[in-house]
Design a protein around this nucleic acid. Structure first.
Lengths: 143, 143
DNA sequence: AAACCGCTCACCCAAAAGGATGATTTGATG
DNA sequence: CATCAAATCATCCTTTTGGGTGAGCGGTTT
């Protein structure tokens, strides 16, 4: 990346230099300023496209595959003693949302979500949220 | 696409016009030609980046529905550019292990694991590890 | 040989997550 | 009505994650 910037600088300098040469050697007073600007514009547009492609790694958009039918294991749900609210948090957690995002989505405070997650960890016998998710999947609480 | 070209033309024309105005009104004989060219160059570079991104757009990749047992999607694995080591980390991460635990299991330092995870987040377009796991499952990189 | 890539590790800093505890409100139920 | 569980929120403190950057090393590739 740093090198790309460096290369960009080099090419830019080279382009400017080249244009100056052209200006004094061939084009000065032969071509109108509009055309002159046009040439510069075109050149730097191409340069911009190149640099843009270098940087912005065009990410591919993957489409999630349609998952088969899933059914929650209600028995284990009651056995673990997970409440509805806690389950909601669990679902969003498994989707990869942060506590703050979950809080926003459920219209509660961050602290509340933390409490719910803490309870979930105890009930799912997990130390981390990633573990809780894994565990919940094993117990067929989430798809 | 046709509209993009049209817009590009418009913006280009506008830029040229603007530059001409500036030239006669403010900058003529006040700024050196180098700076003038620099401004034009920068402008068109930005324009180029924009146009470049417009065109070389992200392509959508459809995923085959997950039938039967699990098999790693090698194609996406290479497409995302995830290395073997990174994949190992991804697997352990999905199991719910912390970075420290992963480091111990792979006999590397915590910092190394962090680097791998950071790379994974970029390649999987995720902000958190939970998101990365979710994403990897969608892409059939992990069961 | 030079460029590149994967893997390794380090340091710093900021944000997120987690642990422990206490408190209030509300709805259901014995 | 008194009690209890669920839900809500807070505060304090620690650990874990994540972001950014730089750097060294051992193989390919050019």
């Amino acid at each position: 990346m740093t090198r790309t910037i460096f290369i960009y600088g080099l090419v830019l300098a080279a382009a400017v230099f080249m244009l100056k040469m052209l200006e004094y050697k061939f084009f000065y007073h032969q071509l109108s300023v509009e055309i002159y600007i046009g040439i510069i514009g075109l050149l730097f547009t191409i340069l911009g496209i190149w640099v843009g492609n270098k940087f912005t790694r065009r990410k591919k958009v993957f489409i999630a595959p349609p998952v088969g039918e899933f059914k929650v294991n209600e028995r284990i749900l009651t056995e673990t003693g997970i409440s509805k609210r806690e389950y909601e948090v669990l679902e969003l957690m498994a989707k990869g949302l942060s506590n703050q995002e979950i809080a926003d989505k459920l219209f509660v405070s961050l602290n509340t979500v933390k409490t719910h997650t803490a309870n979930l960890f105890v009930k799912l016998d997990a130390k981390r949220r990633t573990q809780a998710i894994q565990r919940a999947k094993e117990l067929q609480l989430i798809p």
